[in-house]
Amino acid sequence: MSDRTTETFWSALRAETPARVGLHRVGDGVGTRHVLEAAEAHAFARDAVHGHLDVPALAAELDSLGLGPALHVPSKALDRATYLTRPDLGRMPGELPPLRADRADLCVVLADGLSAEAVHRHAVPVLRELLPLLDAGTTVAPPVVATQARVALGDHVGAVLRAALVLVLVGERPGLSSSDSLGAYLTWAPAPGVQDSARNCVSNIRPPHGLDHASAARTLARLIGGARRLGATGVRLKDTGELTAPPEPR
């Protein structure tokens, strides 16, 4: 048997699964190429976890959506090491800038979560697709950019704004094959202490390998419409095939 026979067998199968199957075996280890590929993938994931959100650049992009000037809300976690070990601090805003309680139908929070890269790549494109799909007359508050932030920080922002719904777009925990996956969490009547089971989530927004921006926006628009009719989010809201249990980071 030759290595080439085995490689021919596996190369056809590899097209059907993202799993690292049929790796070239050397002794009881794997070939150098695989070791370097895996290390490279881990390096991308690590850099995504430790990357910083470029708040001015994101705010400038958000300006083009016409929702008003973006506001920056840092969490109580002052740095990444604190963020990673103290989820409680990442769920709470530090100093809140002056936010107007204008009782909008929807407020949007862009949170770095565990991948700032995901927010930079996908958050504004999702919003650009989403805004035209909202029911006529839906009011949207000026966007908030939150740093060292977890999903529940949006509950505090939504509560101060007295918004009916908060949509948090957050960088998901990077996997070895996905360092830029965005999650979207929708919460009705946001207030500190909301349970995760009271949210709806669209995860794995990550074209071209995951959900594309337009599909994510259509699902979110359906969820937002459904939430407003039902007056709730969470397990009761099930009008789409895109609902999943909330993954990390919470």
Partner: peptide, 18 residues
């Protein structure tokens, strides 16, 4: 044991068949 130590569903790394 997972292929190449990479669990492509759960998004974490474990140990491999090798």
């Amino acid at each position: 044991a997972v292929p190449g130590a990479d669990d492509v569903m759960l998004g974490y790394q474990s140990t491999s068949f090798h």
